[in-house]
Amino acid sequence: MAAEDATCLAAYRRGDAEALGRLVDKYRRPLFAFLSRFAAHPGEADEWFQETWVRAIQHMNLFRQKNLPGWLFRIAHNLIVDHARRRKPDCSLDAPLPDGTATLADMVPADRPTPAAETAGRDLGRLIAAAAANLPVEQREVFWLRMDAGLSFREIARVQRCSINTALARMQYALGKLRAALGPAYRELQDLRP
């Protein structure tokens, strides 16, 4: 954990309410952006955001990692997975196949963005976001943890409690589906410069 984070946490425990504000503000953007990608509406993202912080501070004694953002994203991941399970269909596309290498969803071509999404967002970025919304939860998580939150694959693997190879494979599946969903538009990406 960064020394600054540890100082803020210690100050909050001593009763300094502003220390919590400083800490929340520091990780507000990446955490809220990540949660927003999975929430049905801003109110839900806001609820998850608050719950993530409450759980993080409540269970700080159990925290073994030295990386606060990793710990926050791990809790956010749990919230998202719990939520996804509650509305899980009878036959899950996320269930692993008997050989354990992939899921049923990996074998099914990703949906193209809906016509509404295409007309609403003509630019490539919105098309990518719309196509990513159709990815299975695990792949979507890896994709946004990498692209939005900027986590390394080692950190993503820690968040998802999987091997780094599994995290990489999920990202590859996600990119493959985006490529298939966006078609020629995906190839335009090579003309963009960061």
Binding site: F32, P42, A45, E51, V54, D148, L189
Partner: peptide, 29 residues
Amino acid sequence: AELCGLAAAIPPVTAQPAADAVPRIAARL
């Protein structure tokens, strides 16, 4: 080149948490 372009193409999330998120977190705690 596509991977580099992908990072550049994705629009950032503009939504923000509620303005009173911190007091609410403190109250829940």
